[in-house]
């Protein structure tokens, strides 16, 4: 699980003595008694960036909803030592909604308030500080729907920061981002991990997953969990339920791709 000599630009998993945020054993998740995902054994520590790989319908969202306590575990154990915040896909939100970036970040404060309480000035300052932290200070007053995809994703990360949750679940945050936005987001996620947060990041980018140090492969059950070295061809085939083909691409060079269960977009 730990990589003693991380490659340049790559992050190793958190040290073994870092605080454990999530520990599961034989966890089964699903809806109304029907398991969607079984056999999840994972330990998330402060500072971990875990790439969650798997096909659509493989159980990523169900796992996130279970960690958020929206779904009860169907079997096994789930120990959460801290609160979770989720960073959803931006296209789920209404882009015509009349809210500024600050308004959206401020929504993170609601979870900490009793139902009759409104966010205070201090909460508003917190929202501004979070937007500053994700590099959007000068866009704080712009309408959420007018921002670019990458900026919107970072606003939602800021909202998770306002929730001040040590565990952050990100649902395919890199989908639809251009290279510059993706790089900014990657730097931001690294900074969050360095602050001692534990991140679970759903992604379809295997190369990215290798860089983050820890991977969790799901396809209706846990296929693998560990360092980048667990990403063998057989694990990838089991994860995506398809054949791996080697593609020679003029732009990206020689690299493996999974067919046909999932189309990797480049």
């Amino acid at each position: 699980m730990t990589d003693p000599v991380p490659a340049p630009g790559a992050a190793a998993a958190a040290p073994a003595d870092a605080r454990v945020l999530v520990r599961t054993a034989g966890l089964a998740c699903g809806y109304a008694g029907t398991p969607v995902l079984t056999g999840v054994d994972l330990t998330l520590r402060a500072g971990d960036r875990v790439a969650v790989l798997g096909p659509n319908g493989g159980g990523k969202t169900t796992l996130f909803r279970t960690l958020l306590r929206e779904l009860d575990p169907l079997a096994g154990t789930l120990d959460l030592s801290a609160r979770c915040a989720v960073v959803p896909q931006t296209e789920r939100s209404r882009l015509d909604f009349p809210v500024s970036a600050t308004d959206v970040a401020l929504m993170g404060a609601v979870s900490r308030l009793a139902w009759w309480r409104r966010p205070s000035r201090a909460d508003r300052r917190l929202a501004r500080a979070a937007l500053d932290q994700v590099g959007l200070a000068e866009h704080a007053d712009r309408t959420f729907g007018d921002l670019s995809g990458g900026q919107r994703q970072r606003v939602l990360v800021a909202r998770a920061l306002v929730q001040d949750a040590p565990i952050v679940l990100l649902d395919e945050p890199f989908t639809g981002l251009d290279a510059v936005s993706a790089e900014r987001l990657e730097q931001l996620l690294l900074a969050l991990a360095d602050e001692g947060r534990g991140l679970l990041i759903a992604t379809h980018d295997v190369d990215q997953a290798r860089r983050w140090g820890t991977v969790l492969c799901l396809n209706r059950r846990q296929i693998a969990y560990g360092g980048a070295e667990v990403l063998t061809r057989s694990v990838l085939e089991a994860t995506y339920g398809g054949e791996i083909v080697d593609i020679d691409c003029a732009v990206h060079g020689h690299h493996p791709a999974v067919l046909p269960a999932h189309h990797h977009e480049h």
Partner: peptide, 11 residues
């Protein structure tokens, strides 16, 4: 109103 599906995660 902004995002019904994430509301539960925000309490």
């Amino acid at each position: 109103g902004f995002d019904r599906l994430s509301a539960a995660g925000l309490g």
